[in-house]
């Protein structure tokens, strides 16, 4: 094998890149009609999100007549950014990620539906350390939030901690971001962090599924209620499709066995309409906690 063969190989590689690039550029253009691209903030493991979404995706396909493609991601901000750059059409957002999306899209993103439960959502503070009995005992401990831009795993707990006179960066020994609510439970159960906070809905689900040993890990504080999750569309999506999607969510009926499965996976009693103003409180909290500038 001589040098010149390698050089030629490299040149051919370059040609191949250009070739492959032109092919891959042509492909999406062919198939972009009648596709609804959906994603969700990764507040749980991506495999779990895919499992949860599958029946809902089928239902939305039937209701809108569009092909539904779900892309799982592992980063909250990527979902917001994708909605703002129109790479996705519909997203499951948290209250704070919705506020971020609203700001990134100059107020055009539209929340279309939320679960009944999201109107009075809470976060649970958990620990496996017997000496922690109240928020004040957290001083000098290691603490795990979920993702930095999570509403129930970071923003609202931070806001309520602040109201209780605690500043995580100053008062805690170490602050970590587990990235997802179920990961926070794993952190605390394993002693990787002495305490943590997560979304009440995921906590209840994990307790029901016996995925957490409640003799060891216990809840020692709960936040006051606030508005959380919703389904948001990008503002320049065809209004007919927006209407179809909104109706599809609101039509989900727990009395219908097929719908019941979808609702159960989404951990929703039913879906209710929502509006931007519902999230003004979150926006204020984010400013006051220093997460929005």
């Amino acid at each position: 094998m001589s040098f010149s063969s390698l050089r030629r190989a490299a040149l051919k590689g370059a040609v191949a890149c250009a070739f492959a690039a032109s092919i891959s550029a042509a492909l999406p253009a062919l198939a972009s009609d009648a596709v609804l691209r959906v994603s969700a903030i990764p507040d749980e493991a991506p495999t779990e999100l895919q499992r949860k979404f599958a029946p809902l995706g089928k239902y939305l396909e039937a209701q809108t007549g569009m092909k539904v493609i779900f892309t799982p991601v592992s980063d909250y901000a990527a979902v917001v950014e994708s909605l703002a750059t129109k790479k996705i059409d519909l997203a499951w957002l948290g209250g704070f990620t919705f506020v971020q999306a609203k700001i990134r899209t100059n107020g055009t993103a539209i929340p279309i539906a939320q679960r009944e439960e999201d109107a009075k959502f809470t976060s649970k503070f958990i620990t496996a350390d017997p000496s922690i009995k109240s928020l004040a005992d957290l001083k000098g401990k290691t603490f795990a939030f979920g993702a930095p831009s999570s509403t129930s795993g970071s923003l609202m707990p931070r806001f309520f901690l602040q109201q209780a006179g605690l500043n995580p960066e100053k008062d805690f020994k170490n602050v970590a971001f587990s990235g997802a609510h179920d990961a926070t439970v794993a952190f605390v159960a394993a002693g990787k962090a002495e305490a943590g906070v997560l979304n009440a809905s995921v906590w209840d689900k994990m307790v029901e599924a016996k995925k957490v040993d409640t003799d060891k890990v216990r809840v020692f504080a709960t936040t006051p209620p606030y508005f959380d999750y919703n389904w948001t569309v990008r503002g320049d999506l065809d209004p007919v499709i927006i209407k179809k999607l909104t109706d599809a969510f609101l039509k989900l009926d727990p009395a219908n066995p097929e719908h019941k499965e979808i609702l159960a996976l989404q951990r929703a009693a039913k879906f209710i309409p929502t509006k931007k103003e519902n999230y003004d409180g979150i926006e204020k909290a984010a400013h006051s906690a220093g997460l929005l500038k």
């Binding site: 094998m1 190989a9 051919k12 191949a16 890149c17 070739f19 891959s24 550029a25 999406p28």
Partner: peptide, 28 residues
């Protein structure tokens, strides 16, 4: 030789295959 040709083909094919698999929308 046959070896360098084989290597060339492999290299070429693997780069094309990589871009195909990843399906990067460079146009977008």
């Amino acid at each position: 030789g046959w070896r360098s040709i084989g290597l060339l083909v492999t290299l070429f094919a693997s780069i094309v295959a990589s871009f195909q698999l990843l399906d990067i929308g460079f146009g977008e």
